[in-house]
Design a protein around this nucleic acid. Structure first.
Length: 416
RNA sequence: GUGGAUGUAGCUCAGUUGGCAGAGCACCGGGUUGUGGCCCCGGUGGCCGUGGGUUCAAAUCCCUCCAUCCACCCCA
């Protein structure tokens, strides 16, 4: 084979595309019920937008972006996530000037240059929601509830909702220092990765999978005991609204998300069925981001659902057979084919799914195909029928056949 | 970037101590000259991932590269 797709980029074929259409359609309905409207932003932005928004030291920015330069030497990058783009569009189009709360969603491909594995592609797709202009905590709960509602509506139930609070600008730096101090004290019992984490983003040490590290950090100061009164109250409120919605959740003090801009509420929806990639959806509050990208002080919160991961959880629900044609046209011979061709067009105008044999095949072969296509009715037009100006209409389920004048076929046709 | 596994028909996979390339499904045709599903019979379809090496002989043994998958890292 001369050409193949790029590593980590894949084709989505029928019937899987049917599943994807269903996922998108369902998500749009849920968004609509929460009053979220769609925004579509470009797949490429100036690199600076991401490096400033997501964080220079994050893996996403430091080693996973697809970058190139334009003819003037400006760095551009395929978007590795949606939030920075949405915030940029929000500011550029003056939505913040209009005031009020903006509730936006977007669905589309993201790009990260990572080594592919189960549930992880280089081009992957996210369903993304952003709520800008409200400080919470009710909006925090709304977002979590909406994410769970989408998954449930799609048909995914075996998931775990984990939530945490990372604190805000006034309390997180203090905690970070406290934690750093603790970690340097136990540095010798930490794995190599964690020593690196201790420098870059000490909070990440909490979700290390190495047993010795888990043991070593048991005595570490916890976030929940160090967040400020405001953050603690905010978090309590979020939890109480989740309770009111009847949502079961797990408080996960180790849940530390990788993007720099998160603060206060963070959450992740996890499954055990996707190998090492257990996050189906994740998100959190990012009150500082709008300002960081040149806008006003503006609270916001968002989340993303991984479409490949959702699709993977649903792959055994992919229908094996299409819904079926309404009518299959079996015309025998060229004269019959020409006589029936305009009639086929008229039947389709009525909204019917009409299929036909393109080549020259015997009746047996054509009926076989009609069967494969799960056709409801077959219109049979042979030379004898053609001479009489009639066609045979066969009901595939009952095998009943009737003779119908050709000029009445369209008016008699109905959806089966 | 690091580690492990796997590459044979459109798909899922067999292939023995190295000895003619296989099955099931799918597709096409026949059994029925113009009537589907089930059944029966037949057929199409392969650079055995790539390039080298060993050998009388390689899908099989050795090496190279490539691809895919899984895991680490990180994330949706």
């Amino acid at each position: 084979m001369e050409f193949s797709s790029i590593k980590g980029f894949r084709d989505i074929l029928p019937p899987e595309t049917g599943l994807w259409q269903g996922i998108e359609e369902t998500a749009r309905k849920v968004f609509s019920s929460f009053g979220f409207l769609e925004i579509r932003t470009p797949a490429m932005e100036f690199t600076e937008l991401f490096s400033r928004g997501i964080g220079q030291e994050t893996d996403i920015v430091s080693k996973e972006m697809y970058t190139l330069s334009d003819s003037k030497g400006r760095g551009m990058a395929l978007r590795p996530e949606a939030t920075a783009s949405v915030v940029r569009a929000y500011l550029q189009n003056g939505l913040h000037e209009a005031g009020g709360v903006h509730k936006l969603y977007t669905i589309g491909p993201m790009f990260r240059h990572e080594r592919p594995q189960k549930g992880r592609l280089r081009q992957f797709h996210q369903i993304n929601a952003e709520l800008l202009g409200d400080p919470g905590p009710v909006s925090d709960a709304e977002m979590v509830i909406m994410a769970m509602t989408i998954l449930e509506a799609i048909g995914i139930y075996e998931v775990r909702l984990c939530i945490n609070s990372l604190g805000c600008v006034s309390c997180r730096p203090g905690y970070r220092n406290t934690l750093s101090g603790y970690l340097s004290g136990i540095r010798n019992s930490l794995c190599e990765d964690c020593r690196r984490r201790a420098e870059l983003n000490p909070l990440r040490v909490f979700d290390c999978k190495v047993e010795s590290c888990k043991e070593a950090i048991k005595g570490a100061p916890s976030i929940s005991e160090h967040i400020c009164r405001g953050c603690a109250e905010h978090f309590d409120q979020v939890k109480s609204y989740l309770d009111l919605a009847g949502l079961a959740f797990t408080f996960a003090p180790n849940l530390v998300r990788g993007l720099d801009y998160y603060c206060k509420t963070t959450f992740e929806i996890q499954t055990d069925r996707l190998g090492a990639q257990n996050a189906v959806a994740g998100g959190g509050r990012y009150d500082g981001l709008v300002k960081m990208l040149g806008g006003p002080e503006m609270p916001a919160i968002g989340f993303a659902v991984g479409m490949e991961r959702v699709a993977a959880l649903l792959e055994d629900t992919i229908p094996r057979y299409s819904k079926g044609a309404d009518i299959f046209v079996a015309a025998l011979g060229e004269a019959s084919k020409k006589r029936i061709f305009p009639i086929i067009a008229a039947l389709r105008k009525k909204g019917l799914r009409v299929e036909m044999e393109y080549g020259e095949k015997g009746l047996k072969a054509q009926l076989k195909r009609a069967d494969k296509l799960n056709a409801g009715k077959v219109i049979i037009l042979g030379e004898d029928e053609l001479k009489r100006g009639e066609a045979i209409v066969r009901d595939m389920a009952t095998k009943a056949q009737e003779t119908v004048p050709l000029d009445r076929l369209v008016s008699l046709a109905e959806r089966h």
